[in-house]
Design a protein around this nucleic acid. Structure first.
Lengths: 209, 209
DNA sequence: GTCGGCATGTAAGCGGTTACATGATTGG
DNA sequence: CCAATCATGTAACCGCTTACATGCCGAC
């Protein structure tokens, strides 16, 4: 249940609304964790009930209320406890690789597969690189806020950790692009051979195995 | 719902039991998709009802029945249709990176974090490399079975796709190891400075923001 | 006035995890 | 005989997705 900690982490910089969180999960934070608003609002309620965050209504106009959430001491303790705990790794579920392995059953679309892979990771790489450049150039308002609230030594740690996280994911995206390009090069080099129009093995093979 | 296709893919080589699948998800297949037996058995029932696979009881002894499942023509068509479809990418959820980003709140355990990361990916790399070596050396029984049932040209495709998938994940594991080592080097180079025993910012900061 | 973005919520359903449950076989 | 492994299932719960639902605000 990392959603709770993603929220605590976000609010550990400064208070924010549910909508702020929802947008963050579509942008910056979303590279590492994502969630829909339908998941966020109930979780904010539970976290408020658990005393991890405080909810405060703010009158925007006569007819419109918003709610800001701020982290409580208990919430910050919980965030620190989690941050210091050993990382866990979810069981691998990579539908793209799975698909590739069994694409010997339908090799005619391999080119499109690799091209889609490149497009996906090129987009990711560009987004991550742009955000990282913003952070390092002190043009990222929320990261700036976090840095300003820390002693210089600690601020350097904050920035370095972001740099590590982002550059790690950028390197991973670049690796995936190069990997898919190797796939394309193999397709280019591979002699077309007899076009595999006939399904193989033939359907009858499923009998009496 | 890739579980269904992981099962179809496995059975597209040769028939197998629910228990076989369960073990595969803990081993080879498990590097790309995983599932518990409590998920597998109900899914096998649904797939049988949908006509994608056939269930056949096999008398092991007087008191023990097992069931083998084999892919049907309809199942193979469905597998091919899926294999030829565009790859999809699940929203990113990487609790390790999320944890790292907010570890400026609890930097005392960063060394353990990077070390755990290295241990995890070193294990993955070794397992993947061993399996890949088996496959390329034609020492992997089930992959051999798959290769034998294909025409030489197609068998080369089967093997190449496995090689791509495994080598891609091996490279990724090595990247993660190098990345974590850069983290450790940074920790080593970083002057210990004033030990950050005092929590910062102090708890009072959550008021009137 | 209507359209897109701001803003907050609920409900149904699905996929995955954890736990419960049972029994046979094999090897030490 | 006992433990580990083989083998198959069900039930409760949880987290996430998709869809439903409502209403305000500012810009054109």
């Amino acid at each position: 249940m990392s959603l709770r900690y993603a929220i605590l982490g976000y609010l550990s910089t400064a208070p924010g609304t549910g909508y702020d969180l929802s947008r963050q999960f579509d942008a910056g934070l979303g590279w590492f964790w994502s969630a829909n608003h339908s998941q966020i609002y109930p979780e904010l309620r539970r976290m408020t009930e658990a005393g991890l965050i405080d909810r405060e209504p703010i009158k925007v106009t006569a007819n419109l209320d918003k709610f800001t959430y701020s982290i409580t001491p208990k919430g910050r303790d919980e965030l620190r406890r989690w941050a210091a705990s050993k990382p866990t790794y979810a069981p691998n579920r990579d539908s793209e690789r799975l698909q590739l392995i069994f694409s010997d059953e339908a090799p005619e679309n391999l080119r499109a597969h690799f091209e889609a892979h490149i497009a996906y990771f090129a987009f990711r790489r560009n987004q991550l690189a742009a955000t990282l450049a913003d952070m390092l150039g002190h043009k990222h308002p929320r990261v700036n806020l976090r840095l300003d609230r820390r002693r210089p030594d600690d601020a350097a740690v904050t920035l370095k950790l972001r740099e590590l996280a982002y550059s790690g994911d950028i390197a991973r995206a670049e690796l995936e692009i190069e990997w898919a390009q190797r796939g394309l090069e193999w397709l280019d080099a591979k002699p077309a051979g007899v076009p595999t129009t006939q399904a193989w093995p033939p359907h009858e093979d499923h009998l009496d195995e």
